[in-house]
Amino acid sequence: MSAPNPDDDQAYVLRSDCAGVTTLTLNRPQQFNSLSQAMIAALQGQLDDLAGDPQVRVVVIAGAGKAFCAGHDLKEMRANRNKAFMRQLFGQCARMMMTLTRIPQPVIARVHGIATAAGCQLVSMCDLAVAADVARFATSGINVGLFCATPAVGLSRNLGRKQALEMLFTGDFIDAQTAQEQGLVNRVVAGAALDDEIARLSAALIGKSPLAITMGKQMFYKQLEMGLEAAYQYAGEVMACNMMSEDAGEGIDAFVGKRQPVWQGR
């Protein structure tokens, strides 16, 4: 008879909803919220469920316990040391990370503690990030002989090339202020003010047209992969379509009439 698994019957990701904001909390605090296959699958399932929910306007990714996310589950990886498992794991994780950019709602990382390796990748793949002043970030795989190749994808799209490579080559931590200066997070506040700051940012997003936010998010990530001329052509088409929407007409009329707009939804 096998020993009981401490993760059995655990809700890997906790969901809470309040006034248009859905918070998904990584819930393996004893393992520093490491991204096991089950954790990734649970987060993927939650993201898929809320993507089609028009009542959800903002998604917040948080972590239970002391850490935000310490990356992949190294014990699980060592216990399944074969290439097929590794390909499946990293493919599963990549799909989840890309889903963060593909769902219509803005996604905010709530970083209260360390975010290392794939945890740092998770921060980089969220649309926005708010960090406590005690939070720290690292791509520390290099310290155990493993270059953080998949975290490098998100990191290199947030930081400058030399800043990203310094993190990837050294595995050294950077503090929250440095992360903000280098573009990994948007805002840094005292830990006690973290939830209030996220509430303020969420309220600002909820106050905008959901259609414009959805169209804008999709456009932003798609144009990043284009050449300059193609990006302008695509952006111009998106803006023309956006301008023909009811929300754009309502927004302009409200501005001219000096009143609050009433948005139609996405």
Rank of each mutant, 00 (worst) to 15 (best):
V13G: 03
V13W: 09
V21F: 06
I40N: 06
A42P: 07
A51N: 05
V58Y: 10
K66W: 13
F68W: 13
H72I: 15
N82M: 05
M96H: 09
P106T: 02
V111T: 03
H112S: 15
H112K: 15
A115P: 07
G119T: 03
C120I: 01
S124N: 07
M125C: 08
A129C: 09
A132H: 02
V134T: 13
V134S: 13
R136N: 06
G141F: 02
G141S: 05
I142G: 05
N143D: 08
G145K: 02
F147R: 13
C148K: 03
S156T: 10
Q163C: 07
G171N: 06
G171F: 01
F173R: 04
G183M: 07
R187K: 12
R187Q: 13
R187D: 09
A190M: 10
A193Y: 04
S202G: 11
K208F: 12
S209K: 11
S209L: 09
P210L: 10
A212C: 02
M215R: 04
K217F: 00
Q218W: 01
M219I: 05
Y221P: 05
E229K: 10
A230M: 04
Q233A: 11
E237R: 14
M243H: 13
M244E: 11
D247W: 00
K258V: 11
Q260L: 12
